[in-house]
Amino acid sequence: MSRTITYRAAKEVAVAVEAHFAGLVAAAQERGEQYLAPAPSKKVVEAIIDTAFWASLRREEGNSPKISLALLPPDHTANPMLFERRLPLASRVLTKLAPGVERPGVHLGVWYEGDYIYVWGTTHEIQSLGFVLDVSEPGLLVVKHRRKDGFGKFANVAVLIGDQVKIVDEHGASLPDCPDLLTSLLGFTTPSALNKSVNVLVQLATSMRAHKHGGTLLVVPTGSTAWRQSIIHPMQYEVSPAYTGLANLMRKETADRSQSPWQGAFRHEIETMAGLTAVDGATVISDQHELLAFGAKIGRPEGSALVEQIVVTEPVVGNQAQIVHPSQSGGTRHLSAAQFVHDQRDALALVASQDGRFTVFSWSPCEGMVHAHRIDTLLL
């Protein structure tokens, strides 16, 4: 593409993005899958990211653009809205269009002929493994792809924050103590991950982060009461009997989950449960998604040692594990969540900060300490 790329990070990330999507599509073709999105070339990736970055810094009527760009030709999607005349891929064009296409699920369709890259309209449908670029806020871009089942959060490939580039480490899910939540978020390449049904914790984490109040979600084994030893009593908002709205939905046959009524009910239950995490204290659910309590105060059981150190990792290329005092991972929520998992080692704690940081705490038997997985890069 004969255009000048002035955003340096676009050049830095384009090679890795090209290789990532080429590998995804090749692996899917080997499995005999059809109706796959075309893999993007390095030059197209550079041009889209460069244009979107400069558009993100512009303002239309005082507002910064929040848009999603999907790379695919218009005849590869169902019921697209087509412009009579193609629009050039330019920052001024994206900024002007942004107010009309900022709703969730609406993507500006981008394609090319020769050296000409253009915006052809909008779409709600994207083929499996399709390249998507989200403009979340000024200077913040996220490269994603659509999951094979087409439902739930897109899988992140890379995050660009100004001149900083974070490439998601696909092999991070192979860590011996990696929780299922992280495995699902990182599950790009394996058939089992791509075909896996919706992961409830992924959706809850995304919704918790979105409400921007901060919050803690504790996931405890079904039928266990040991977790109650780490909660201060009485609990103001204990739920009895356990609320099973989300659990009942997840017991439905997998085939039902592709239907609109199920998906609508699922989103409602997710938003409701994630909303409870905004109440001061922790929300407690079972690993079968039953709501047990919210607004619960975490306390240290009598005779339990204070958690003194944790290992912190982030699933991005080049990240090195660090052993730190739990207070260095965040504020009071993080410290109490680390203590909870230290005492309840078969539990999981998800912590959202008001500033957008998100951490999953799990017990690592190999390291003999609490493992804090920073996953905000995956939830953008």
Rank of each mutant, 00 (worst) to 15 (best):
T51C: 14
K11S: 14
L350K: 03
A39P: 12
F340C: 06
P138R: 04
D134H: 15
G264D: 12
L175E: 11
P221S: 06
S362C: 13
A47S: 13
L335A: 10
V143Y: 02
G152V: 04
E12M: 06
R357M: 12
L129F: 15
V219D: 03
V311Y: 06
S364P: 07
T216M: 13
M81V: 15
L133F: 05
K66G: 06
Q328V: 10
A173I: 12
E269P: 01
I49T: 06
A28M: 06
V316D: 02
E302C: 01
H211K: 07
D256L: 11
S64E: 03
L186F: 05
G299W: 00
K11I: 03
Y237C: 10
S260V: 09
G356P: 01
H371S: 07
V135M: 03
L217R: 05
M250H: 07
E18T: 11
S68M: 11
G105N: 10
G245C: 05
A347K: 04
R147Y: 04
R300I: 13
H76Y: 12
V25W: 13
G295H: 03
H20R: 14
G214M: 11
A47L: 13
K66M: 08
F154S: 07
A282N: 02
I285F: 00
L186W: 03
G299E: 02
Q339V: 08
T123H: 06
L181E: 01
R8Y: 07
H334K: 09
S207N: 05
E60Q: 14
A55Q: 01
E18W: 15
P38V: 12
R345F: 09
A47M: 11
L292K: 01
K96Q: 13
T51P: 00
I49R: 02
Q309R: 15
L291W: 02
A52M: 01
L186N: 02
E269F: 02
Q354V: 14
V316W: 02
L181N: 04
D346C: 05
E33K: 11
D163N: 11
L378F: 03
G356I: 01
S128Q: 11
L175A: 13
I161H: 10
D115E: 15
I298N: 01
D355E: 13
A193P: 03
Q259R: 13
G264R: 15
A155I: 12
A70L: 08
R3I: 12
G139Y: 04
A14N: 03
